[in-house]
């Protein structure tokens, strides 16, 4: 098995084992969405209108909150030293870890979104647009958040710091993700424009994220 394949399988395995918490992200997603109407009110027309925004915000928080252990767990048990020393390029190592993380926490959010969307009175067309934007957008959240996880790797309370560091960086993804998802409503930008920019943002993050995270890890490890 190739080194990166082994790493991908290991990380995915750990996250579905006891204590791995792969599905806690989805639970968090569900809880946040379910709480919104208590604050906003149960008006279905209103919920339908802001539903995509709520789901996007909840997905953003859910995918970031799960990220703080991405490198910290490997740092705590000494695995990170060996990952840094390995023959596989560190950029690809961190990208593989991020991919495993997205497959076990990001992808379940995308799959759960249409079901949770029912709570906010989204119809099939809204759901389709939402799922498509989340499918394209959540990898960007993981790969941007990964940089924060690498910076905060050796710190106590790194999770809180991670959120503070990364949330501002995700503003563009949020803007274009929600814009594309809401384009079914009057007055919004056309789907294609926002969605294309969202794709571009994701592709950029797939490139920039691993390099920045690898650089941060090399600094932090000393």
């Amino acid at each position: 098995m190739t080194p990166l394949g082994a790493l991908l399988i290991r990380d995915m395995r750990i996250s579905v084992r006891v204590g791995g918490g792969a599905l806690i992200g989805v639970l968090f997603f569900l809880v946040v969405v379910a709480l919104m109407p208590f604050a906003i009110g149960p008006n279905l027309l209103l919920l339908k209108r802001i539903g995509p925004a709520i789901l996007w915000l909840a997905a953003l928080l859910a995918s970031l909150l799960a990220l703080d252990r991405l490198f910290a767990a490997d740092h705590d048990d000494g695995s990170l030293d060996l990952l840094l020393m390995g023959r596989a390029p560190l950029e690809l190592v961190v990208a593989t870890k991020a991919l495993a993380h997205w497959l076990t926490t990001g992808l379940p959010l995308v799959i759960a979104a249409p079901v949770i969307g029912l709570l906010l009175n989204l119809d099939a067309a809204d759901d389709a647009a939402l799922v498509l934007t989340l499918l394209v957008g959540t990898p960007a959240l993981t790969f941007i958040g990964m940089v924060g996880a690498a910076i905060a790797v050796a710190l106590r309370r790194g999770g809180l710091l991670l959120a503070v560091l990364v949330l501002p960086l995700t503003v563009p993804v949020l803007i274009f993700g929600v814009a594309a998802a809401q384009s079914a409503f009057a007055g919004a930008a056309p789907f294609g424009t926002a969605f294309t920019i969202l794709c571009a943002l994701t592709l950029a993050s797939l490139v920039v994220g691993p390099f920045a995270a690898a650089a941060a890890l090399r600094q932090e490890i000393e």
Binding site: R10, V18, D77, D81, L82
Partner: peptide, 13 residues
């Protein structure tokens, strides 16, 4: 090979 203080093992595996 580097054998550090920590065992680099995952308890769940």
């Amino acid at each position: 090979h580097y054998l550090g203080h920590q065992d680099a093992l995952k308890p769940a595996l």
